[in-house]
Amino acid sequence: MSVGTERDRLTDNLQLIPFVEHRHVTLLHELLRQNTARLSLGFLGIVIALAIFAPLVAPYDPADPNYANTFASPSLQHPFGTDSFGRDILTRIIYGARISLFVGLSVIILAMTVGISIGLTAGFYSKTPIETVLMRFIDALLAFPGIILALVIMSVLGPSLRNVIIAISIAQVPGFARLAHGTVLSIKEEEYIMSARAAGSSNFKIIRRYLLPNAAPTLIVQATIVFAFAILDEAALSFLGVGSQPPTPSFGLMILEGQQYLGDSFWLAFFPGVAIMLTVLSLNFLGDALRDVLDPKYDSD
């Protein structure tokens, strides 16, 4: 074992597992044997369904103000109360789930595509200047702590949901790049890759047939974690006022608004906060369970 930087060690935890075909079938089965995973999957299922069918299930319009009924406390008509514009908070949370899931999914797709491309390129051209340039660039991105990089990018792009997705994705690229780079390096010299190459397989075929299947379990776990991070970061950026802008029903914005009314109308901030927390909690439990199931070497106990 040689010491790399800290991220090497973090990704070491998610060690690569040889891929076995029948895992597909048993994965869900094994997951469902764990209580926390069952609960998390159930909750996420409900959230996803609510988000998709928001216009059908939401009792009110998320943007429609009702100045006759502002700051209504939770009741049968408005289970989570109404906000300073008289908008139904339950409705806004259902639409907020849409935004959170959309951000999470977009960030995974963007960060994964860009990160894996960079990592694979660096891996295939290892020991060349291409690798050095790409991976040093990734190192530099990793030197920005926490959401600082996303903040700097937002300052230039300007606040909007699209820009939030771009900023968070850029901040999540290094993790995927490291993962892909490590995978290539670890199996590049394996005999079956050499023989595939000798038999005339193209780079693309080697990636599709050998590399991606090898990295798939680790990627799935990583994607779950990034999903949770993206939801938290979007909420944080919106809360700081540099993310989504009103009247978008983003969880972070709803908490920002509610912060002004902690004394008398606590529900404004409370319910959106609980919504983020439960969603992220489910993702974290799911990620943990996935790691247990997918990686026999990793023993959380």
Binding site: I255, F266, A269, F270, G273, V280, L283, N284
Partner: peptide, 22 residues
Amino acid sequence: AFVGLSIPNFFLAILLIKLFSV
């Protein structure tokens, strides 16, 4: 520990302010 990892720090801050200050 899982709850602590999942709660956004700014939301926790607001809960703490509500309870201990307000």
